[in-house]
Amino acid sequence: MTATLTETAPIPSFGNEEETDRKLVIICSKGSLDMAYPGLVLANAALGEGIETHLFFTFWGFDMITEKTMDHLKFSPLGNPATHMPNFVMGLPGMTSFATHMMKAQIEGLDLPEVREFLELITDAGGHLWACRMSADMMHLEEKDLFDRVEGIINASDFIEIAEGAQTLFI
């Protein structure tokens, strides 16, 4: 490799210091351990890029923000061909807790935080957490049952307002 001499070093733009209007909304609709992480990782990454980020939890995604369940999400390998194991094995008693245990060990091995700590990181970084009104009503949950950093239980039209101009992901 030959060294070339430049007079001045380039300065990284860091995406321009101007206020970016990029905005990300992630709808979290799943309550299994494996499906909780994609939204959390992307939200955290977006915030690290200075992007306004909102997480909206709906249906099974409520398990990620409900105090009673958020520390106990599970991974079931049953009916998941990507585990490359036959279903009659994956349906055996105890298999869900075994697979969950294995996955949690992997998550920890990668130095990834657990769901609660991840949500703390995200909100510390300026991310917003919202809960779905219809899901709350269906599951008979109120704000006091939810992780205290959830900003509110909002309805579908509130959500549409928040999502104005945002890139939206449904997970």
Binding site: A3, L5, T6, E7, A9, P10, I11, P12
Partner: peptide
């Protein structure tokens, strides 16, 4: 690899300007 002078010192930087 690019060499640049930053604060009077000659250093190696990448395309974005990171050391």
């Amino acid at each position: 690899m690019t060499t640049a002078t930053i604060a009077g010192a000659e250093v190696q930087i990448d395309d974005e300007g990171f050391l």
